[in-house]
Amino acid sequence: MSSRGDLKVTIAGLEFFGRGLQAGTTPELVLKPRGFKGWTDGVDMRLDDSAIPNQHGSYDRQAYRSARVVSLDSYALTDSNAKLQQIGERVTGLLSGGELGRIEVVQNGETRWADCRLASKTKFEEIARDTAEVQVQVWCPDPRKFGDVWTYTATVGGGVVPGVRHFGNAEATPQFVVAGDMPGGYRLTFRGENFHVIWPLVSGQPHTIDYADGQLWVGGVRIHGGLGITNTPTLPGGVVTALGVVPLTTGTGTATLKLFDTYI
């Protein structure tokens, strides 16, 4: 895609601007035309292409997305060689410890983000006393991109909450916080599937459940043996569903669901 004036890309706090946007008085990183790649594309698929013996074709097995790689080619534009050196040191230090960072893209008033790591050697080549060419490439292990967050809350005795959805184009992963007093545990219902927690829910000690791993956490501690049936469906873009929470024995409480607009 072309670098456009309304584009800003931030990686672990370091800002890259499309032409026409100013970074103020600080040294600027200005994206080259067509210098931002891999973000608006889809991603490659991982396929198990195993041939069926003595037949045409291959076995039909689940395919999975590969990680996303995003590259930025830009100019560093400053008013002195000293400032150019400073921004060069900052660029080459970006995520250089192998740590997880975040890439955030703002364009046309919309914000999308993903977590990332440095994918390859960062390049910084001085081409004038106040100008350098910069290349940064990051690797997003989860190729999905995330936007606004939506919350829905179901209450024991309040029935199901309809109209649960997000506004992305890919499957969103539910995240729950369950609070209240249900000593015999409870059942979450989402997309018509059940998730049973048999660990007691105690007032003031909410439960946290992320369907990405299906684990139960209480007070920052992972609970072993506290779960029963654990169906963990995701929610595709455009699908509308319902949310409910019911105690397995007695009690009261709420289940708050968080969903991000999720894109590929």
Rank of each mutant, 00 (worst) to 15 (best):
Q107A: 10
R65M: 10
E126W: 01
G157N: 07
S2C: 04
H196C: 07
I198L: 04
F36T: 03
V105N: 01
V134T: 10
T230K: 09
I87D: 01
T249A: 11
T78V: 11
L188P: 07
L118N: 11
L21T: 11
R68L: 00
E28K: 11
N54R: 09
L201N: 03
W139V: 10
R90P: 04
G237T: 06
P143M: 10
N108W: 02
W39E: 00
Y263L: 09
G237Q: 08
V160P: 06
Q205V: 12
G253H: 01
D49A: 14
T153D: 08
A119N: 08
G35T: 11
E171A: 15
A67N: 07
V9G: 00
D6R: 08
G226L: 03
L188F: 03
N169Y: 06
G251I: 10
R222N: 12
D44E: 13
G159A: 05
G225I: 09
V106P: 00
V149A: 15
G101V: 09
Y64T: 15
P162M: 09
P174M: 02
F167V: 08
Y152G: 06
P33A: 12
T153G: 05
G219M: 10
N169I: 08
G158M: 04
S66Y: 05
G98A: 12
D73C: 12
G18C: 00
V156C: 00
T131G: 07
I127H: 03
H207F: 06
F36I: 02
K83L: 14
F17S: 00
A67V: 09
W139E: 10
V30E: 08
G35E: 06
E15G: 07
R117N: 12
E110A: 07
G88N: 08
V161W: 00
N194R: 13
D73E: 15
F190L: 12
S3K: 04
